[in-house]
Design a binder for these strands. Structure first.
Lengths: 215, 215
DNA sequence: TCGGTAAGCTGACGGCATGACAGGACAAGT
DNA sequence: ACTTGTCCTGTCATGCCGTCAGCTTACCGA
């Protein structure tokens, strides 16, 4: 599908080359989580990887290009988030469980990838379509699943028909993503992780079913 | 309270100086909305303002310092967002209206200041306390008001006592902020502004009162 | 009117990151 | 050993950063 890994000047990368490339990506990834995006310099990444800036430019057009690569890898992993919604029932106790697990899984994924997700979020907000596409790839699976579940509920008459599943699902997912990316902030502000989760789950449940959950 | 405006090297700024300073801020502000934050260079801002980079460094320690200044100005304006919540009733029809107006006002404020808010969000997410504080200043007024309203409802027995007003209010506000900062995204993805708002308002209402609104 | 003083601005400079290139090192096959 | 193609780096021109000395401009009191 993706074809071979290639250098900027068109050569195909061999074993050694791919290793170097990956090492650069790893180091960049680490830098992103320890210093502001604006201050990440090619020379630092190269130094950290024990190589030279010139090498970096063999594999990536610039920092942004490398960041996109990392984001792409993460987005591929992120596809598994669908499993948090698909095939779940939103009725009764299992509905509450579904909401709780969705929140849990989401916050966890975000915590594991917060550095790169920050940059993706910024790129998307700035209007860069490549970043926006990646963001979509991650969120879409969840959004679509939620949206489908709501349409089912609507068909069964268990949910108001005049609300838009897409908008509601989008809002819910946006909320999860936002809270997730400011988890640390909530903590310093005095809201504990433990009380954040059930409240988020409650909001999710309310949004999905329009009803209070029966725990 | 704030004392006089001062240059980096300690001189007090006069009329002309303040004008130059403001012009630099305006130009920076415009740059932020037309090019990625990472690519905003001091020299470009200076050129745009018809002055030299050295002048920029007279008034600001670096780009980030100037951005903080802009953000501070915006935060001051943003304090008026409190008015969207304070003194509102969440019962009956007026409850629905309160939710709608909160959503409206929020999205509008975000749309007007999206460029600078993006950068503030990034800074906060990266753990910079100065940006975090500004973000708080804007969101706190709304969050606190919502939180207070919920405590009232709890006292009257109209709302479950086992949920945390702070966490819920925080989640609601985070959701509003998130949706607001990706408004354009929602649109390109096929969700129209018109159907976004009522669904958001519904979520807000559900979260605040635990009940479906009576319109 | 005339200095005196502080504000305001800029040219110039060392330092560093960028991005391109050519050439050397290295591994693998013959 | 020789060839071929991959891989890495030294080097260089370019451009931005951040600072300083020094020049110009505005204000003010005598």
């Amino acid at each position: 599908m993706t074809g071979q890994v290639r250098t900027v000047d068109g050569r195909v990368a061999g074993r050694r080359g791919q290793a170097t490339r990956q090492k650069l990506l790893d180091c960049l990834s680490e830098m992103l989580s320890t210093s502001p995006y604006r201050d990440v310099k090619v020379i630092d990444v190269a130094r950290k990887a024990g190589t030279s800036p010139a090498t970096f430019y063999q594999y990536f057009p610039d920092v942004e290009g490398a960041v996109l690569e990392i984001a792409e890898q993460m987005a591929a992993e992120g596809a598994q988030l669908t499993a948090l919604v698909e095939g779940r029932s939103w009725a009764g106790k299992s509905g509450w469980q579904a909401a709780e697990e969705l929140v849990d899984g989401f916050l966890d994924f975000w915590r594991r990838n917060d550095a790169i997700l920050r940059v993706v979020d910024l790129g998307a907000a700035e209007g860069d379509k490549r970043f926006y596409k990646i963001r979509m790839k991650i969120l879409n699976s969840v959004t679509n699943s939620l949206s489908a579940s709501m349409q089912e509920l609507q068909a069964k008459g268990r949910l108001d028909k005049d609300l838009s599943p897409a908008a509601m699902a989008g809002s819910i997912v946006a909320m999860l993503a936002a809270v997730a990316s400011h988890q640390k902030g909530f903590q310093t502000w005095g809201v504990k992780q433990a009380e954040l989760k059930p409240n988020l789950a409650l909001l999710v449940h309310l949004g999905m079913t329009g009803k209070k959950p029966s725990k």
